[in-house]
């Protein structure tokens, strides 16, 4: 479902060319729980941005659901992000002025879905992360773990092909971190494809496929 073929990413900063990804090839199957680990500076954030269609590769090919998208326009990429990818960020990235319901609803608004169906689907998504009764709380009225669960609901609500989680437990205490991981695991068990980027081996241990990135190349692949 996700196939990267010899993807490179080079940043040009003034005179200096910095190659962050040096030919990455990965294959994420449907229903996989795929983790990418590596120390900071290994290029895993860049890889995450490319997988999430927030950025495009310098060279190489990226197939998502069979479509080669590295040449897509900005609007096409926005559509892909909206429909095929659900993001979960380390810092939650909820909009502080919107309550939980409105945050989760947002992807559906951008998709142009009618308000009645939006309401139903938003409530289902919030219910699935156990926050149905907190839907009218603002992010600052929720704990870190709850905020991340709202973010998961937001990622899920559009029924994307893949959930992309970037250090989802990085800003959480162990207990809420585990709760979040439990949710991700159970989602995966129900067939959702998940890609997690982390430097935490405990997180990676829960995944089915694991790759290790160092200095822009894959140094280890492990299928459990």
């Amino acid at each position: 479902m996700i196939l990267l073929d010899k993807v490179t990413k080079t940043y040009i900063m003034g005179e200096i060319e910095l190659t962050v990804l040096k030919g990455i090839s990965i294959d994420v199957r449907e229903g996989d729980f795929f983790s990418i680990i590596g120390p900071s500076g290994s290029g895993k954030s860049t890889l995450m941005n490319i997988l999430g269609c927030l950025d495009v590769p310098t060279s190489g090919e990226y197939y998502l659901d069979g479509q080669e998208i590295s040449t897509y326009s900005e609007n096409d990429l926005a559509k892909i992000r909206n429909e095929k990818i659900g993001f979960i960020f380390q810092k939650f990235n909820l909009l502080p002025k919107l309550d939980a319901f409105e945050n989760v609803e947002l992807p559906l608004i951008y998709r142009g879905i009618k308000s009645k169906r939006r309401k139903e689907e938003t409530e289902i998504a919030l219910d699935s992360v156990g926050l149905y009764d907190r839907m009218h709380h603002k992010p600052n009225e929720l704990s870190g773990g709850q905020q991340q669960r709202v973010a998961i609901a937001r990622a899920l609500v559009g029924n994307p092909s893949v959930l992309l989680a970037d250090e989802p437990t990085g800003n959480l205490d162990t207990k809420s971190g585990n709760e979040v991981l439990d949710i991700l695991e159970s989602l995966n068990r129900k067939g959702r494809t998940i890609i997690v980027i982390t430097h935490d081996f405990e997180v990676a241990d829960r995944s089915k496929t694991e790759i290790t990135l160092r200095d822009g190349i894959i140094v280890n692949r492990k299928v459990k």
Binding site: A78, F87, N93, P107, Y110
Partner: peptide
């Protein structure tokens, strides 16, 4: 700026 980033990440187009 960050809000704009989040909105774009979840599918807002330039025109939005």
């Amino acid at each position: 700026t960050r809000e704009i980033g989040v909105r774009k990440a979840i599918g807002a187009r330039r025109s939005n």
